[in-house]
Design a protein around this nucleic acid. Sequence first.
DNA 1: AGCACA
Length: 493
Amino acid sequence: MSSSSGQPQFRYTQTPSKVLHLRNLPWECTEEELVELCKPFGKIVNTKCNVGANRNQAFVEFADLNQAISMVSYYASSSEPAQVRGKTVYIQYSNRQEIVNNKSSGDVAGNVLLVTIEGVEAGDVSIDVIHLQVHVNTEKSSLSAYCIGGNITCLLKLVASLTVFSAFGFVHKIATFEKAAGFQALIQFSDAETASSARNALDGRSIPRYLLPEHVGSCHLRISFSAHTDLNIKFQSHRSRDYTNPYLPVNPSAIEGTMQSTVGPDGKKKELESNVLLASIENMQYAVTVDVLHTVFSAFGTVQKIAIFEKNGGMQALIQYPDVTTAAVAKEALEGHCIYDGGYCKLHLSYSRHTDLNVKAHNDRSRDYTIPESGILPMQQAAAVPSAVGGWQTSQATSMYTGNVPAQLPDGQVASWDPSMQTGRPTFVSVPTTFPGQTYPPPAVPTFPMAGGTMPVQQLDQGPAGITAQRPPQYGLQPGVQPTPGQHPFYGQ
DNA sequence: AGCACA
């Protein structure tokens, strides 16, 4: 009676509960810290952290009411307040009798990940890094077919696909959006297991600096599970992608970046597109083999066929992709760039009128990768690659950069992206050799900087720990393979 | 420093 008219807050503190409410917790207090504090009093069966507007409250549920009571009464009479990281924590009985299991907000595994990229705005990851991004997508070459433009979406795709090296690590969809907090994306995998492995591998890591524009500082990934199970992607665009549906309409405004560069400075409009690219190679000081081309062009998707031929004393090649989009991406990314440093083997690309090359399955002028025995199937590679996570920086960026490789070191000891480096042997030496961070043995100047001139990406910067980052990814052969020009290191034997 | 998924 009289108590019912009293202060409501006393009610809370006076009704015992197995659940304790803790407030005034330090910033980003972890569950471990909570458990540390509470477990002397009993068995903790559940927790909920980061509660409240300031995310500095938490709930802890004991197995038994008496355990909760013992904790409350202990600190009620203690001269030492409860503390976490030296901060006084206030403890009361919760006004609820159990923690309603609400972990869907980030901790219950689902097939969709919510990725928050700190320190990056949508525009920060631009066309400059597309080749790197899509390049690594080659891991899942079948997935990269619809990657349009160089943007964060591609990067995320990369992040996601890089991570999951199970044969079933399919990234289905990506939706990105900007929030006040930063840049976020939802990445949909086929199942929770795949998503979990992606999360485990990448949560808290950083995107390698050399994939980012210079002005972007560290770029940490924070990954949790989304409650979504199926994203509703309306368009293929720079902000969203549905890799399961190649026929989804492309948002015209979203591919400007791609289209623009097919529009020459002379105002010349887009040529008729094709899934087959015609490459002419200028200033060919070094051998450009089918394998080299395959390596280079695989960065953007599955290369189905390649044919090389002479024209007007120069060399040309046809490169067939499964679809126009992939070809467009490759064309845009590679046009005017050189396979080797120093302006050697400069690529000029146009669309071929061919759509399906009729080539010999395996000889030195042509290759049909769609024929099983002529190469390694992409999915096999994906399954075989143990992990590329080594290429991702931990905050400390420790042993990843073993080398100090300024420029032009032919034996690329710092293949930080090379999964085979971790196994000590070249697992599969077809497409995976497109992993960057490797050098290109044949020429003395072994980089493939995608440089029309030279790409900004080539600029090396200091790693976070003051370690000189190795050369940015290059397209090249595997160090261990060391083919000599004219040989076929990949599909030989 | 004061109670969480709609």
